[in-house]
Simulated scan of single mutants.
Amino acid sequence: MTYAAVRAHTNIALIKYWGKRDEEFFLPMNSSLSLTLEKLYTDTFVQFDEELTEDLFILNGKKQSEKETGKITRFLDLFRAQAGVSYRARVASINHVPTAAGLASSASAFAALAGAANIASGLNVDLRTLSTYARQGSGSATRSIYGGFVEWNKGTSSEDSFAIPIDEADWDIGMVIIAVNRSEKKVSSREGMKQTVETSPYYPAWVATAEDDLSVIKDAIKERNFEKMGEMAEHSAMKMHASMLAAKPPILYFEPASITAIQAVQKLREQGISCYVTMDAGPNVKVLCRLSQAGLIKEKLKDFFKEEQLLITGPGKGIRELTEDELQKNNWSFI
């Protein structure tokens, strides 16, 4: 019986990925760029066992339904097919990210699962190839293979649609996450993407301008021009949500508190504090800022939000295998 456990951090896209051109292989309409986050992550254990007759999936200590386990089975089949492994697997994940709340939990979840399956199956592909596997579980998971700023090249096929690390983000980069609502969202990202692609008259403009946005933000990162980077990240997020609002019927992830957060950040900029908003498919707001100013920004946001709704994080690292001590701390009883 072989097993492995891997930690992967979630990422927040600064140049957004929204919409697939291939539903089967999760190939995106446009390339994207993200920041991996230190404080939000998933630990996943995978053990292949010849005595098992079906895959077992435990999330946060609870055995998952046949439907949820089926998603894991289909994903693990990618590794079984390549590695020549037929054994079923035990999979246990501890998600340190609220699931399906617009905080990119699927990115860290499938990146961690890919990393653990890669080792446990004996496949041991390189990280670039591994990112193409992670992508087939969740598009944004391809970027969580790496730390810092990461680009996901849309590619032309499943083989060349992969992630590339472009900068370690070790130049005073941080984020304040405003957890407006941790509940599961009513419209999933997959459903929202499909509806936007098929019905929004604004969507073609989103795709047409995304590559230019990516070029601008990559230049800003290379120049370490924080303001230029922040402006482009905020622009990309608002443009993505505008395309959703124009879908039929409209897709609205914003809640009243989301607007409050956006306006609070705008006010902070007027006061000379350099910070910018980004949002994924959910109501939660992320504030891109200088890590050295994150504490100040958090204090000012307490005028509108509770302490437990605010989280400061710096850049996260790429995937890594957990140590035996870390495995024991997770208290997975069947290890």
Rank of each mutant, 00 (worst) to 15 (best):
residue 18 W to Q: 07
residue 18 W to E: 08
residue 19 G to K: 13
residue 22 D to K: 06
residue 22 D to A: 12
residue 25 F to S: 09
residue 26 F to Q: 10
residue 27 L to H: 10
residue 29 M to I: 02
residue 30 N to A: 14
residue 30 N to I: 00
residue 31 S to T: 03
residue 33 L to T: 09
residue 35 L to Y: 10
residue 40 L to C: 07
residue 40 L to Y: 15
residue 42 T to M: 02
residue 42 T to F: 06
residue 43 D to K: 12
residue 43 D to Y: 12
residue 44 T to A: 03
residue 44 T to D: 03
residue 45 F to S: 09
residue 46 V to R: 06
residue 46 V to L: 01
residue 46 V to P: 00
residue 47 Q to N: 09
residue 48 F to M: 05
residue 48 F to Q: 05
residue 48 F to T: 06
residue 49 D to L: 09
residue 53 T to A: 11
residue 55 D to K: 09
residue 56 L to E: 14
residue 56 L to M: 14
residue 58 I to Y: 15
residue 59 L to C: 15
residue 59 L to N: 11
residue 61 G to N: 13
residue 63 K to A: 13
residue 64 Q to L: 14
residue 64 Q to D: 08
residue 65 S to N: 15
residue 65 S to H: 14
residue 67 K to Q: 12
residue 68 E to K: 14
residue 68 E to W: 04
residue 71 K to M: 07
residue 72 I to C: 01
residue 72 I to Q: 00
residue 76 L to S: 07
residue 77 D to Q: 13
residue 78 L to D: 00
residue 78 L to H: 06
residue 80 R to C: 00
residue 80 R to K: 14
residue 81 A to S: 13
residue 83 A to P: 01
residue 83 A to E: 03
residue 83 A to L: 02
residue 84 G to C: 05
residue 84 G to K: 06
residue 86 S to G: 02
residue 86 S to H: 10
residue 87 Y to D: 14
residue 88 R to G: 00
residue 90 R to F: 14
residue 95 N to W: 11
residue 96 H to K: 13
residue 97 V to T: 11
residue 99 T to W: 03
residue 100 A to Y: 08
residue 101 A to M: 08
residue 102 G to F: 09
residue 103 L to D: 07
residue 104 A to N: 02
residue 104 A to F: 07
residue 106 S to F: 10
residue 107 A to C: 05
residue 108 S to T: 02
residue 108 S to N: 06
residue 109 A to Q: 01
residue 110 F to Y: 15
residue 114 A to M: 04
residue 117 A to H: 07
residue 123 L to S: 04
residue 126 D to G: 09
residue 129 T to V: 09
residue 129 T to M: 08
residue 130 L to W: 08
residue 134 A to S: 12
residue 135 R to W: 10
residue 136 Q to W: 05
residue 136 Q to T: 07
residue 136 Q to A: 03
residue 137 G to Y: 06
residue 138 S to Y: 07
residue 146 Y to C: 05
residue 147 G to I: 05
residue 149 F to S: 02
residue 154 K to N: 11
residue 155 G to D: 10
residue 156 T to P: 09
residue 157 S to W: 05
residue 161 S to G: 15
residue 161 S to R: 14
residue 163 A to P: 02
